[in-house]
């Protein structure tokens, strides 16, 4: 059932995926969509995009150490999960199988047994420990600000768009580098852009640099979440939430609002574009110059 649906979906709309990168377009130009569909269907997450895709099962590719830690923790815990699942189902099936009025007319009545009681006490208390220790280690390392960040970006949620402020380069209280980021309406999408994920102004950040993201809101609760970066930070009006990230590779990362914030909750995505430090510098200075000129004129 799943496979049939999956194949159908991919066959009818190979373009639905988060194929915003030129990579996918070159694939299409090669006229080999069929092969790609099969491959994509086999490996589910073959598209090199940092966005959600149809029928995705696992996490998106990690771009920060934090996300890598989250994925590793997930796999760690999954090991115990499967262990317990197999063991418990074996006991259950075995009990059901043998509890039969013909095969075992007189059921065994074990009231207590020291060995099994010790075992079933010790093991269930050890397993949570093995889960808890890496979990807490990850949890606290996420909170820690290890080194001084190089850049502070303020992400301010509004109903229903986002404002980003780069204020490290300000010389007065006038905001010199501030922009709004709106989603691109469905009708204006270009070929290859993802529906409900694309915005007009992306957040440009340098890769391999410690960033401090200050998340806040101007009206109601919002959330700034980018799965590939392992970030999900609630935006609370009147409060500045800090999260620090280090993007390890250049790329475009997609995220969505993750806190029900009203009618257009689904239409305020987040797009983070990680570029090299040099490109970031020129980008910022290019944006700064026209804006400061505007201020000077006004």
């Amino acid at each position: 059932m799943y496979t049939a649906l999956n194949r159908k979906r991919n066959a009818t709309s190979p373009n639905v995926g988060p194929s915003s990168l030129p990579y996918e377009q070159t694939e299409q130009s090669k006229n080999e969509p069929k092969q790609m569909i099969v491959l994509e269907w086999l490996f589910l997450t073959i598209a090199p995009c940092d966005a959600a895709e149809p029928w995705q099962l696992g996490s998106q590719d990690a771009a920060t150490p934090m996300m890598q830690g989250i994925i590793d923790l997930h796999h760690d815990i999954f090991f115990f999960l499967i262990l317990i699942l197999v063991f418990v189902s074996r006991i259950l099936v075995r009990a059901l199988w043998h509890f039969h009025y013909k095969k075992n007319p007189i059921p065994q009545r074990i009231v207590h047994g020291t060995t099994i009681e010790i075992l079933r006490t010790i093991f269930p208390s050890i397993i949570p420990m093995f889960i808890a220790i890496p979990s807490f280690a990850l949890l606290y390392s996420m909170d820690e600000v290890v080194v001084d960040p190089a850049i502070t970006i303020k992400a301010i949620g509004h109903q229903w768009y986002r404002t980003y402020e780069y204020s490290d380069y300000n010389s007065s209280d006038e905001q010199s580098l501030t922009f709004d980021s709106y989603t691109i309406p469905e009708d204006d999408l270009e070929l290859g852009q993802s529906r409900l994920l694309e915005v007009d102004n992306r957040v440009v950040v340098p890769a391999q640099t410690h960033l401090r993201i200050i998340v806040t809101s101007a009206d109601v609760l919002h959330s700034w979440a980018v799965p590939s970066l392992g970030v999900k930070c609630d935006a609370v009006p009147g409060r500045l939430n800090q999260t620090s990230i280090l993007v390890q590779r250049e790329g475009v990362y997609y995220g969505q609002c993750s806190e029900i914030c009203g009618t257009n909750h689904a239409f305020m995505p987040i797009v983070v574009e990680a570029v090299s430090r040099k490109d970031y510098g020129s980008r910022v200075s290019n944006q700064l110059i026209p804006q400061t000129n505007q201020i000077a004129e006004a």
């Binding site: 960040p149 190089a150 850049i151 502070t152 490290d168 380069y169 401090r212 200075s285």
Partner: peptide
């Protein structure tokens, strides 16, 4: 490359 942009905060 970019003398005016210092990465500091």
């Amino acid at each position: 490359e970019t003398p005016e942009i210092k990465l500091e905060t």
